[in-house]
């Protein structure tokens, strides 16, 4: 790979200042002495600017989503049904709330809980 190609691959991060000082210095020295890389640098700066403008022009439905989200934050359970027997060790539970996961069902066999309906909880 040519020096110019290497320098040009680093350019997006050179423009955003996300390189360590020594690398920034090396790139700056090469760009100062290379017309092709100066031209490419101008392209990267222009593309970055146009890209940001195009993304900024996209409307974001901030208020609409907040209006939907806000009432669901403390959503209480709407219903829960438990059927089973502690004595024989078999237990079935089904629960619903008003968030997006409406129904969950668990089967408990001899103390081991097995989820049979709904999605398992994952860490965020």
């Amino acid at each position: 790979m040519s020096i110019c190609q290497t320098v040009q691959d680093w350019m997006p991060w050179y423009v955003s200042g996300h390189l360590e000082a020594t690398k920034m210095g090396r790139l700056a020295r090469h760009i100062d002495s290379c017309e092709a890389c100066q031209k490419e640098l101008a392209h990267v700066i222009q593309l970055r600017h146009q890209f940001a403008l195009a993304v900024d022009a996209t409307p974001v439905p901030i208020d609409r989503v907040w209006d939907v989200l806000s009432p669901t934050l403390d959503a209480p359970k709407k219903a829960r049904i438990d059927v089973g027997s502690f004595l024989i060790g078999v237990h079935f539970a089904i629960a619903a709330d008003n968030q997006r996961m409406p129904v969950q069902g668990n089967l408990k066999v001899l103390g081991h809980k097995v989820q049979i309906i709904g999605r398992r909880k994952k860490g965020a």
Partner: peptide
Amino acid sequence: ANAVYRYALSILRKPHLAEEVLQETMMAVW
């Protein structure tokens, strides 16, 4: 919210899906 919506839109290209991602992401953060 802006960053989440715009990032989702960059992946999905459909505003209604990006809106859903914003909602689900913020609920997951909560």
